[in-house]
């Protein structure tokens, strides 16, 4: 599975937000909401990245099959 740079940015940033939110929350700051927002972003970004990766793989295999048939 490979990501383009937009997807990599989304995944890295959302993980960073989760990490920052959780770390601050552990040390007693009101940042659980930030960690939750980051988590939601990560789930959204990851599912979109997964879908687009699957589409790419399907397209590649379809093209391969078409070439093989020709």
């Amino acid at each position: 599975m490979s990501f383009n740079r937009t997807q990599a940015f989304e995944l890295f940033t959302s993980l960073l937000i989760v990490l920052i939110g959780s770390c601050f929350a552990i040390f007693g700051y009101s940042s659980w909401m930030l960690a939750i927002v980051g988590g939601a972003l990560f789930v959204l970004s990851f599912s979109r990245a997964l879908r687009s990766s699957k589409r790419r793989t399907d397209r590649r295999s379809n093209t391969g099959e078409a070439q093989h048939a020709n």
Binding site: F9, E10, T13, S14, G38, S45, R48
Partner: peptide, 14 residues
Amino acid sequence: YGTFIATFGILMPL
């Protein structure tokens, strides 16, 4: 508009 806008919209205020 995709998740990039949401990610940017959270990162930039931080």
